[in-house]
């Protein structure tokens, strides 16, 4: 019966996806319909319109593949690596700095 539940829940995910894509097409929004579907599902969970138990087993499946690049394209690798490290430094530093500051403020008051 578990497999039936997973298939049903996948269909629900598809439902949210289709609604998201319809909204995206209708309003001509510059973001993917799947993100709109995600926001709709998250709202439905938060507002308790849709219970967590009815979606929890839904499977996720992501697979990746890689074409090769040559010549100048190789430079894209160090770019991505450095940019990723900058991203991590910015995100990690900003969140820790703000968290420490608000913790210190709480101690003072």
């Amino acid at each position: 019966m578990k497999i039936v539940r997973i298939i049903l829940q996948l269909l629900v995910l598809y439902g949210f996806l289709l609604i998201g894509e319809a909204i995206q097409a209708l309003l001509q929004l510059p973001m993917p319909g799947s993100i709109i579907g995600f926001l709709l599902l998250f709202s439905a969970l938060l507002l308790k319109i849709y219970p967590l138990e009815w979606i929890d087993a839904g499977a996720r499946s992501v697979v990746d593949y890689g074409p090769l690049f040559s010549g100048k394209g190789v430079l894209l690798l160090p770019i991505v690596i450095i940019s990723t490290l900058i991203t991590m430094a910015a995100a990690g530093f900003a969140s820790q700095y703000i968290a420490n500051r608000s913790a210190a403020q709480k101690e003072e008051s």
């Binding site: 949210f16 799947s34 579907g37 926001l39 967590l52 900003a94």
Partner: peptide, 25 residues
């Protein structure tokens, strides 16, 4: 891919209290 994006709502919902408590940082 599409349903995988929509499904991200589930882990975010599960961590909603953590998110609320540390919203600003």
């Amino acid at each position: 891919l599409g349903p995988a994006v929509v499904a991200l709502a589930v882990p975010l919902y599960k961590h909603r209290e953590l998110l609320q408590k540390n919203l600003v940082p």
